[in-house]
Design a protein around this nucleic acid. Sequence first.
DNA 1: GCTTCGGCGTATCATGAGAT
DNA 2: ATCTCATGATACGCCGAAGC
Length: 638
Amino acid sequence: MGKAHSANTLSRYGAMQAEMGLERSRRVHIVFRNTYLLQYEAHRTADNVPVSATDKAAFEMTEAYHKDCARRKEAYTEASKLPFGARDEWRVGPETYSAAIKDCNRLARACFESNGILFIPSELWFGFLMRRAAALEFAQSRTYKINPVNYGALSGLYAHLKRSIDNTVPVPPPHVRLTLSILCLPEIAARFGMAWLHNLNLDLTSPLDELAFEDKLLGVYKSLGYQVGKNPNRKKAVPKRVAGTSKEYPIGEWPTLASLRREMGQRPLSLIKPWVPVSPCDNSMPAAEVFVLFTAQVWDMIQPELLLQPVPPPPATLEEAMERWSAAYLFQRITEVDFIPLISGLQTEEAARGRPQLSFLNRRPIFFPMPEENIRPGSRWLQFRDRHGYLRRLAEFLKQMAKEDGEILLESLTDMLDNVQCLPCSVKGTASSGGKVWTAGKKEGVEVYANPRFYRIRGLGSDNQGPAQKRPVAQARPSAFAKKLRGSDSDSDSDSEEDEAAAAKWLEARKAAARNRKRSGKAKNSRKPPARKPRANRDPEDLPPVSTEEPEEETDSGRQPPAPGAKPLTRKTKAKSSREPPKPAAQARRVESTRRQPARRAKGGKVASEAEPEEEEYIDGLDDMLEESGDEDESVGG
DNA sequence: GCTTCGGCGTATCATGAGAT
DNA sequence: ATCTCATGATACGCCGAAGC
């Protein structure tokens, strides 16, 4: 028995190779037989060792990788004009050789007549290979931009599949072996004749959930050739910002968030792609029934005066229901509707800030809460649990079904929500709050969220012209510059004295700036506390607990390092300076929580009116202080 | 008395910078 | 490398005012 090599993910269609056992080869005088396609020659090298960019190059998307892609494409283009054949290779002993050579014509004819060779035009075959390579390159670059936790494993997988396009890869690198074994690709190919990555979705932040293990955990970096303990710096891909607009990208391919919001407010339909009706679905599915009911009933909850007359009948099919959530339909049927762009899942140039928005995919619990969830009495959502409500129907289905089927139902609903263009900005009903089904727009009417999947943009760009210049432009020293200005003729002593003074000041300023750079952010932000009032006027409670430290504080506290006690001191100053009467319990709680929020502190500091002049003084005097406090700054660092 | 609405404050989150 | 902190947008809950 021999070995049947796979052709890419196609099992058994690559080549056949059979090595005879010692005993058998003695008897038949055949040592080895090998049958394979010569198409591999299109991409072969002189020494027959396939050259392709390393996995690391693909991982980093280096120039070498791009060159390799271009080289392959070129080779296939050339090859599509040439004929290639198949080769049947026998390694035989002299006895068989002499017999076979006499009979080779008959053997060749028999082989041909057995119809064992499938002839495909080169153009078709290499066109297919080219598309395959292009698809894998697209997947690679797309995944590079998405930058998932398993980017290394995925890019290794793509590289492996690419290598296998026209070659049988003898032993894949460790990280690819691991990936293949997690996905059971060889087993699936052996069982079904072909393996698929049908769960690969390049629109998601986690493109292949089955493989959602962190690269670090799988040892991918090590396998890629990175030094142990030195993981690659996985930077966010920087989208190319394309200037100008087009019909396809009305506000450019990479607009800023602000311009996206503006455009969505003004011309939502230019920004959201036209609705393409979904292909006919199985409307007998429970999920379809629930979704149709959901659509009809949620639409019913809009105030009638906001709807344009005549109001169409409720949707009958899933296709109709989904269309009711298209931007065009909402725009046409509701007198006033504010489209609010969601940006979850969009590729953004700037780091994502703030709490991530719920994607359409994750809004299922808002619209389809589980029957056992407690919702505050009086909530609008409870109406849907009434006799004919869609939530009642959903609960009935879930009750009837096995657990797995129920999960499939919920997943289908999730999927449907993910595939509509807009949804109301609903707020989930909870045990403590009623939530909202529709939210009011700015003027009148309603607000809806737009699904980023349907935007005519590639992602969000930034106004930011890159990081601020860190290193100041190198400048000539004042004295040298002054000399140049004067030219070589004047060189008076009085001038040069001034120059020297200026130069000294400039040098000192540079030193101070250097010292300042070393200071911690905390130290820079610490402000000089207000001057102490005369002891006699002060409330004894205001005194710090350890009175022996007082004199030192009085002279030096402004630039003292923020020792463990210093932070509360700032707060204390703020609290006391506002001179409020003793607070009731509720307010006290608030103060306590502000304490935990350092961000609020700065705000609070400004409120304290007494502190302001001091603060200005402090900032004004900062330069002087910096110059003075050379050594003390060394101790700063918290 | 109940519901709805809007304002406000807090919690949450991912990220980068700086500190350790 | 890892930890800590600041940042800033958003979700969410609470609460008082307004409306019925």
